[in-house]
Design a binder for these strands. Structure first.
Lengths: 214, 214, 214, 214
DNA sequence: TATGAATGAGATTTCATTCAT
DNA sequence: GATGAATGAAATCTCATTCAT
């Protein structure tokens, strides 16, 4: 009846446990949602019994919060370094930014985050605010700088920057979401990278001034 | 009770009940997620007590399924008619298509659907499949025809059609999702329509061949 | 495994339930203590299933608090009326006070309260404060008035009033506690009333001035 | 670890461990009750970690039982010697008995016992029986002898002895209980000894025959 | 038909106890 | 011996669902 006990006893005990539990939780939250994920599921996937997660986290809710704080925010440093690169032109920088975002996050287990945050933000407003302030806004600011820079140099048309940034982000975010959903709006067998390529080609083309095309 | 004069009030609503319950459920599922929404909440928002939904639906799960079948799919007819319009050029048709999508669905309570389906598709695979087959695929097919048409006429560049379709859809879908989330990646005070405008300007520009620009 | 389900279905549903649950809880708390009393025990004794108490009380803790507030405090009015009686002399009044206390509370299920409060006061400080302020202090004040009155009239010796009050209360309180304990310090077959008689005889004798004796 | 110079410290305490654990348990049981006291709390207060008590005691229940057997019963010898004293009159002997009881037990950590036993006797009937037989009954027998002696000599009135004994004990027991409760029925700042004095004055007075007063 | 008290399976969480280190 | 991570039984509490009224 209880699905708590497993046939295992006294496996290793280590400082790796919290990380393992968070990763198990992230996978399951992304798959089933927060509420539909049972603590026992998390424990089982982490290879422990049902009481063990509570040695490391006060509650299920704290697992959720820790997951954002400890798994996601550290990734932010990545984006920062993108702009420190040598000058390669705005279009190339945009390309690099979006592809790095995809390979570093979209192809890791963290790709689950957008789906998770979209679904649960209303239920965990403080965590959502953290995610927004520490992850989305800085990321958008970076992207904005690239676009503004491109406009200033005449590489891009003078489009409304805010809207362009969102238009650029949307496909990447949607791609991550669709990866974790049974409702893909793109061919699930297609290569996400080639989709990104095509998308980039389209919007970069849209950003270019006539002069650059002619 | 007995022959109280308010009895009429109840019978008047009787026919509307199932619809009211589904709408209440849609709102709440979108806000909190399926699992976190209590049957009692649905009942209360529909203006009935907790036993009443069971007169019309076998279970919570059936409410979810009915919601997709009876609230969403009927909307599909809308899109079909879009292409029956007189010939106005591919760009204008694209514009019309996306704006109609937005005003008819994005500005209605149905804008909750993408968030809901993304979050719950894995937990309700049959419903997700229905949604996918009856709503997304036909919609994409419509959009695809518009793009192909535009390419055939020389109005658009010869881009990969599938990817272009997805790139066109992403911002609209994301806009709907963000509307129902505390994690907006766009200025929540901004007018969604002006965002759509800017997005369309960008991608239409990206679709145009050099000749059209020069 | 779960001791929650009982073989009963759809018994009466009434406004009597909360009271029944509180009485069941009082009996069990007094018998086993708060922590050792399971919610299922309370439900079973109240003749309902394990989920029912939660329709009326938010938590086990609230049952405890309500029990004091709703079962005990109303009894206080009793004591108030004792002093309104016609003048019968201080000794007779003392006798009446202590005997009424015993018959009204000591011989009712409320006799469990001293044991319960002594055991749990530290774990529920706010409830303990309520009990202290609303029950004990007023009761002591009443008793104090009787003693002071007796001294003023020359019926009693001029003893320290506070201490006399406590000395008078102790046997009654201990009698209630012993009734609910396996550690009786008096013969459990003895009649509590005859113990009260003897005790009263002793202390009344102790209160009398020489003149009254000689 | 290895040959650290503090190793001595541990071995020095080794022999004292069981006693320290029992004392920690007594304090906590008295404060929170048996069930609400966690083994980890006991360990922590005893200055060890949560596994250590199990080296000395089979279970929490055994700690409770040992506590009574090893901490309390040895104190009983004290009372025995009280009556071996030279003849000083019944009243003085009563006074000595109660004051010694108070100073030896009431002012030690063992004052927690009445509260603890009252609260838990029903949950640990064998321990309660032990406590009753080995502690309370012998104590009452001692007190009874003093009272009977006093009556035989004409120092006390011919009161019912059993009831008098209980009346004499009640205030002392209550005083111990109130010391460990947030529900004191006496001024918590008052000196317990002066309360005992006053109480004794009252009941001794009540015990005296007319002749002794006049 | 509608109500809402009652049900009871199942989820989260606690903690006495074990045992590898 | 001592430690404290891990265990897992058992407790509290929730809520989808039922059904007497």
């Amino acid at each position: 009846m209880h699905d708590c006990p497993f046939a295992k006893r006294w496996s290793r005990r280590k400082a790796a446990r919290p990380q393992e539990i968070l990763e198990a939780a992230l996978d399951l939250f992304a798959e089933k949602g927060y509420a539909a994920t049972k603590m026992g599921d998390i424990a089982k996937r982490a290879g422990v019994t049902c009481g063990t997660p509570y040695r490391y986290f006060k509650s299920k809710e704290e697992i959720f919060a820790s997951l954002i704080r400890e798994l996601v925010l550290p990734k932010l440093a990545l984006g920062e370094s993108l702009l420190a690169e040598p000058d390669v032109g705005a279009a190339a920088r945009l390309r690099t930014f979006l592809f790095t975002w995809w390979t570093q996050i979209g192809e890791s287990r963290l790709s689950a985050l957008p789906k998770l945050m979209v679904a649960e933000a209303k239920n965990f407003p403080e965590v959502a605010e953290l995610y927004q302030k520490e992850f989305i806004q800085p990321g958008q600011a970076l992207l904005k700088r690239v676009v503004e820079d491109g406009i200033a140099r005449g590489e891009f048309r003078a489009v409304p920057v805010e809207h362009a940034v969102q238009t650029l982000m949307s496909p990447v975010v949607m791609l991550m979401i669709w990866q974790h959903s049974l409702v893909p709006c793109f061919d699930p067998d297609a290569d996400p990278r080639s989709y990104l390529e095509a998308m980039l080609d389209l919007v970069l083309h849209g950003l270019m001034p006539r002069s650059a095309i002619a």
